[in-house]
Amino acid sequence: MKYPALIFLLSLLVAVLFALSLVIGVIEVGPIESLVALFRDSEGPLSIVMREIRLPRALLGVMVGVSLGLSGAAMQGYLRNPLAEPGVIGISASAALGAVIALQSGFSALFALALPLSALTGAATCVILILLLAGRGGGTLSLILAGIAISALASALTALVLNLSPNPFAANEIVFWMMGSLADRSFLHVWTALPVMALGWLLLSLTGRGLDRLTLGEEAAASMGVDLKRLRLILVAGVAACVGAATAVAGAVGFVGLVIPHILRPLVGARPARLLLASALGGAALVLIADVAVRLILPGRDLKLGVLLALVGAPVFFHLIWRMRGQP
């Protein structure tokens, strides 16, 4: 498939799923009527439901999906490893730790944005730690080792917070938050996450040229004019902005950044730069599908987005490993 055709089809898919996400909800109203109510004031609460509940949810679905898909493609391209994912450098674990501390301490109840801002603080702390630990060079190995170490520490601290939780309700809240969800979000969340995510999208869109050249290894890329230190800095900052903001508004949502680049890679001729935009759109489509699915499968049970994605993502991961078995 030609690249422009692929991008067109993926965009179309995202648009259709966005509309689908808007018309599915608790209130039983026809799809046309729902969409009309979005633009024109309706009698009764439908317009408010559409504009204040479903629209931000669908928008967040797109934003979170774009962020995770794009970060996954950039991370795999940078590390030249199809098993890499945005979480590998510890951003998601650190953002989750920030959020968990906010939930545990009661800080999250003080004002609406306390939780997402704490998560973003966690992500920012992680970036600073990574850059300190990995040094100022341009190597990938030191980056991944620093990421693993920070990830392990953040997970341990999260477990400690849960362990010391004063009452079961706080622990319960933390556990449910960590499963990831887009339910009951508002435009406040959209406006909090959008500037950070947009910065991340911009930064990661600058990495394409360097990622393409990294196909030939770090030395060859450097000799072709890639500034490896600059590339690593942009990549870490971009992934942190994307994943930090996504975790801040949606909780821990895994597998999107791992699975989507893997599925789309053969369709873009395996070129890392082209995979960025394709994975951004693919990520949006996957999160929208999953968020529609959690509303349809168990409407009354509040099935979590992260749980569903893990259930879908793990088998794809198995498939990936199965196909790689026996290769050197």
Partner: peptide
């Protein structure tokens, strides 16, 4: 200058 490293790395199945 062009540089041809000894390690023959091709990470992805690009054409």
């Amino acid at each position: 200058a062009a540089w041809l490293p000894q390690a023959r790395e091709i990470a992805w199945p690009v054409s």
